[in-house]
Simulated scan of single mutants.
Amino acid sequence: MSFAARTAPRRVARRTVRTLATVARMASEKTQVIEYLFRQRYNTETGTIDADKAVVFFDDITVAIDETGADLSKNNPANFWKDLTRKNPELSWPSFVLAIGWTGEDAIGAGNKASFRFVPLPPGQTTAFKKAMEPSDSALERAVTVQSLSIPVATKALGRSDENWVAQVAQRLAVVETHFAVFSARSVVEVNFLQTGIKLRGGEVDAAYSLTDFDGALWLVSVEVKSRSEQLWPAQVRRAALALQATSAATEMGARVIPFGVKIVDTSKIWTVEFEPAETEEEQLEVASEGIIELKPSVPGV
């Protein structure tokens, strides 16, 4: 066995330890910032936070980083909440805040430069955040295979693990179209790709499609894309769908919006989730259908 082969496991182990240490440090830094922001808003006498103070804005985060001396960058406070919820936000949530019955939720779109808001824990919930969504066993057992030979080798060589690449692969291989043809209970006659990376006032839509059903009704599909290392959170899916619903395009087309999720769950295995349309930010999304689409041959970055 070569020296490189013998030492490779040790290098991987060291990288893993360094990565875990970095994650732990970042979690600790964010924890003190969140607790500072909470203490600034929480009324100990009433056990409440005034409604007009519950939302945390980008500038508030910058000030809190300064006040706590946290070793965090102030260059992009817009990513503070996004980074927190990409994997496991429980690691960063202050035990003090949880102990007195408070958690946080996405507030992007709730105001100019809004990040997140403090909210009371739902009755009976003992963790700060509900467990992130995962594919059901039934979905995993009935995966559908889709060819990837139509993606040029040169294009695959540039494959990455970010959301833009996953959205591109999904579009090239008709992943969303396959879902509605195979897994959805909707009677669909046509699905068309529209655009990726749509930045809207109330949020960002990773990819958008139009859909025509059997009765001739026109729908828009708002797709939230997640790589393998990120979590699919219904609140983000709902926010993006409502942002698309609020556009003049949706109004002019007379189209309602179908919330939709696409997430990598294993090597070249894509989990697709269709939700029932949402009307308000308070409405909980309900899964309408889900499926697993496996790409063969496997695609780098997916």
Rank of each mutant, 00 (worst) to 15 (best):
V189W: 01
D213E: 12
R6Y: 12
I264K: 11
L295P: 04
N112A: 12
K74P: 03
L121N: 09
E134H: 09
A288P: 03
E190C: 04
G124R: 10
T196N: 15
T48I: 12
Y209T: 01
W93P: 04
K131N: 15
W271N: 13
W81S: 07
R117H: 07
L242M: 08
F57W: 11
I65N: 11
S28I: 02
E294T: 15
P300G: 04
N79S: 15
W271Y: 08
T103G: 14
A5G: 06
P135K: 09
G254Y: 08
K156Q: 15
L84V: 03
I151E: 05
Y36I: 01
E177N: 05
E141F: 01
A54Q: 11
E286A: 07
P259T: 04
D59K: 12
D266S: 14
F180Y: 15
T44C: 11
P152W: 07
S248M: 07
E177T: 08
K131Q: 14
G254A: 12
A278N: 07
E35D: 13
T19L: 11
L244S: 00
F96R: 05
W233L: 15
E141Y: 04
G261A: 14
Q195T: 09
L200E: 06
S210V: 12
N88Y: 02
V12L: 13
K199Q: 09
V302Q: 13
A107F: 06
A154T: 15
L173R: 06
A5Q: 10
W271P: 13
E274N: 05
W219G: 01
E163L: 00
N88S: 13
A21M: 11
N76W: 05
E190T: 05
R201P: 02
T16I: 05
M133I: 04
Q231F: 02
A240F: 00
A110H: 12
F275R: 02
A21C: 11
E134S: 14
R39I: 09
A54P: 07
S268W: 10
W271A: 13
R160V: 08
Y36P: 00
D266H: 13
I270A: 09
V299M: 09
S187G: 08
I258R: 00
D206A: 07
V63F: 10
N75S: 14
T48Q: 12
W165M: 12
V189P: 01
I293F: 08
Y42Q: 03
V225Y: 03
N76V: 05
V33F: 05
A107V: 10
T247N: 14
T145V: 14
P9F: 02
L194F: 01
D50T: 14
V12N: 09
I264N: 11
L37E: 06
V153D: 09
N76C: 03
R160T: 15
I61P: 05
A157E: 13
I100E: 06
A13M: 10
E141M: 10
I198Y: 01
S298T: 14
T19Q: 14
E283H: 07
D215I: 06
R160E: 10
A143S: 14
G101W: 11
P123L: 10
L20I: 06
F193G: 02
Q245T: 02
P77L: 07
